[in-house]
Lab assay of single mutants.
Amino acid sequence: MSGIALSRLAQERKAWRKDHPFGFVAVPTKNPDGTMNLMNWECAIPGKKGTPWEGGLFKLRMLFKDDYPSSPPKCKFEPPLFHPNVYPSGTVCLSILEEDKDWRPAITIKQILLGIQELLNEPNIQDPAQAEAYTIYCQNRVEYEKRVRAQAKKFAPS
């Protein structure tokens, strides 16, 4: 494992614990031996107030490669969400998460999670990743928002 990646992720964890947006979660997972795995984080993004996503808490896994922060983490909703920019596998399609697009090593975990929260309610229809959600979003916004509200209710924190 890269010392650069681990040191950056340790800084990220410290900064997150000191200050993070209300309702968001970002925690490194534990290895079988109980030690912390900084390369694999369990996160959760709350649906934004005043949107059909409100009330939901959407679980996301963030996986970092050894060359982080040169390369972005892979962000994957578990379980996958109904959304035009979420692949059926759950992987998020967002330009700041793509090395050859808008990724920059200075982007923080907090910025990534806030960017994904923004994307939930403002899909990028130029870059669809899920045919069904994309089609319904474009053709029947009322039905799309109904499905999103049902999903938010399903993923409401207990």
Rank of each mutant, 00 (worst) to 15 (best):
residue 3 G to R: 06
residue 4 I to V: 08
residue 7 S to T: 11
residue 9 L to C: 09
residue 16 W to T: 04
residue 16 W to R: 01
residue 16 W to C: 06
residue 17 R to D: 00
residue 18 K to E: 05
residue 19 D to F: 12
residue 21 P to I: 01
residue 22 F to W: 04
residue 22 F to V: 04
residue 23 G to F: 03
residue 27 V to Y: 10
residue 28 P to V: 06
residue 32 P to N: 13
residue 33 D to S: 02
residue 33 D to P: 01
residue 35 T to S: 14
residue 36 M to Q: 03
residue 36 M to I: 09
residue 37 N to S: 14
residue 37 N to G: 12
residue 37 N to D: 14
residue 38 L to K: 00
residue 38 L to D: 01
residue 39 M to R: 08
residue 40 N to F: 07
residue 40 N to C: 05
residue 41 W to N: 07
residue 42 E to M: 07
residue 43 C to R: 00
residue 43 C to V: 15
residue 44 A to C: 04
residue 45 I to N: 04
residue 47 G to A: 04
residue 47 G to H: 06
residue 49 K to W: 08
residue 50 G to N: 15
residue 53 W to P: 04
residue 53 W to F: 05
residue 54 E to N: 04
residue 54 E to W: 06
residue 58 F to I: 05
residue 59 K to Y: 10
residue 60 L to G: 08
residue 62 M to Y: 06
residue 63 L to N: 11
residue 66 D to I: 10
residue 67 D to M: 11
residue 67 D to G: 14
residue 70 S to Y: 12
residue 71 S to K: 12
residue 71 S to Q: 12
residue 72 P to C: 11
residue 73 P to S: 05
residue 73 P to Y: 03
residue 78 E to V: 15
residue 78 E to H: 13
residue 79 P to Q: 14
residue 79 P to V: 14
residue 79 P to T: 13
residue 80 P to L: 08
residue 81 L to S: 03
residue 81 L to H: 00
residue 82 F to C: 04
residue 83 H to D: 04
residue 83 H to L: 03
residue 84 P to R: 02
residue 86 V to I: 08
residue 86 V to Q: 06
residue 88 P to H: 14
residue 93 C to K: 02
residue 93 C to Y: 02
residue 93 C to P: 00
residue 94 L to I: 05
residue 97 L to Y: 05
residue 98 E to I: 15
residue 99 E to H: 07
residue 102 D to H: 14
residue 102 D to G: 15
residue 103 W to A: 01
residue 103 W to K: 01
residue 105 P to L: 02
residue 106 A to S: 14
residue 107 I to F: 11
residue 108 T to L: 15
residue 116 I to Y: 08
residue 119 L to I: 05
residue 119 L to W: 09
residue 120 L to M: 11
residue 120 L to N: 00
residue 122 E to F: 11
residue 124 N to Y: 09
residue 125 I to A: 07
residue 129 A to L: 00
residue 130 Q to C: 08
residue 137 Y to I: 06
residue 137 Y to Q: 05
residue 137 Y to M: 11
residue 138 C to W: 08
residue 139 Q to A: 10
residue 140 N to T: 03
residue 141 R to C: 11
residue 141 R to F: 12
residue 145 E to N: 15
residue 146 K to F: 08
residue 147 R to P: 03
residue 147 R to Q: 12
residue 147 R to I: 08
residue 148 V to L: 06
residue 149 R to I: 13
residue 149 R to P: 05
residue 149 R to C: 05
residue 150 A to P: 09
residue 150 A to D: 13
residue 151 Q to T: 04
residue 157 P to C: 10
residue 157 P to Q: 13
